[in-house]
Amino acid sequence: MQKSLHLDPNKCTGCLQCEMACAWEKYETFTIAKSRIKVFTFHHEGRFVPYTCTQCDEAWCLIACPVDAIKLDPVTGAKIVLEPTCVGCKVCTIACPFGTINYVAQTGKVQKCDLCDGDPACAKACPTGAITYVDADWTGLGKMRAWAGKTDTTAATA
């Protein structure tokens, strides 16, 4: 059974330990600008929403890459950026409709969540259980992906 990250805004306190853990895992820095998971603060609602790539089935980024710099990890299902191959053209960053693949100026490459080879640093660092790595079926992630990929036509524009 493939696993995926389950993100629960109701538990999140906005401590950003996850962002530091991710940045540390990938760049040995605590600078959260380098994190692939982002916690969005909705101050006036009192909500903290952790958010990262859902490793969607469409793999928009992977398909869009002109030079084959994004690969599918057959074990974890993660879409992984191969840094040496990436030319930094940013096409994947606009192709991903979830906004979860980003260009990193310092490296000239893009970055996205790669599930840490199946041992997610963010989940380990989260003190509240807001991030867990669980069987994909349990996460409701499938539903979330389907929703996010769907066109919203609840009302006509005309």
Binding site: T93, I94, P97, G99, T151
Partner: peptide, 17 residues
């Protein structure tokens, strides 16, 4: 402006209200 630009696609193409 570079961060999370994919969201533009998500919002526009998805016709999000």
């Amino acid at each position: 402006f570079g961060d999370h630009v994919g969201a533009f696609r998500g919002l526009i193409e998805g016709r999000r209200r």
